[in-house]
């Protein structure tokens, strides 16, 4: 019989009671939108760019947050993240508060605020545009928890620094509008962006 190194067997996987086998999909609410693909995300990106060019930053941000591919695959989510960051970078510092208040008020405003907060954290976690091209993003966490801890962060070096400062100033403004509750919901919500 072949030699088996029993110490390398992950026994948690074999134990149905183990928390490793917790069905994560049970945490997704029934209201989750239908899956979308990256081509649909690209279509949305084109429409949003149109809005941004026509001088309607508030409309652009609203549209991009309303169409977040919560049920989409990873590729769609990445395309959409790029669109959101493009919109955020396209809005001037002075306009931020006004745009945010417009987006976060009215029907569905708090959902949009939570969604924007998710994108801010995802944007800060993702590698910058320059390094991203060389090393494709790898998911390092052992199970699909939606969080991955071990990842290169773009703290100020290369082209990522500017993007980071944009995201941080949006974060500051958004916390003023939506409060700490919004940050807490980024952590609990399984409908990742």
């Amino acid at each position: 019989m072949a030699q088996i190194n029993y110490r390398t067997i992950n026994i948690d996987v074999l134990d149905p009671e183990s928390s490793v086998n917790f069905p994560m999909e049970t945490l997704l609410p029934p209201t989750l939108p239908a899956p979308t693909t990256s081509s649909e995300a690209a279509n949305v990106a084109a429409q949003v760019r149109q809005l941004l060019r026509s001088g309607d930053p508030e409309g652009a941000l609203r549209a991009v947050l309303d169409t977040a591919p919560l049920g989409g695959d990873d590729r769609a989510k990445e395309v959409h993240l790029a669109t959101v960051i493009e919109v955020l970078q396209g809005i001037r510092q002075g306009e931020m508060t006004k745009v945010l208040e417009g987006v976060c008020n009215g029907q569905g405003g708090s959902e949009r605020a939570d969604c924007l907060m998710k994108y801010l954290y995802k944007g800060m976690a993702a590698p910058g545009p320059s390094s991203g091209a060389q090393s494709p993003r790898k998911s390092v966490s052992p199970q699909n928890t939606g969080f991955s801890q071990i990842q290169a962060r773009n703290l100020g070096e290369g082209g990522g620094g500017q993007q980071m400062s944009v995201l941080l100033s949006w974060h500051e403004k958004l916390v003023e509008v939506a409060g700490t509750g919004s940050i807490v919901r980024v952590m609990t919500d399984r409908r990742t962006v």
Binding site: T26, L27, L28, P29, P30, T188, D189, R190, R191
Partner: peptide, 8 residues
Amino acid sequence: FLNDSAGW
């Protein structure tokens, strides 16, 4: 019941 943002 499960709410949308699904916390403990």
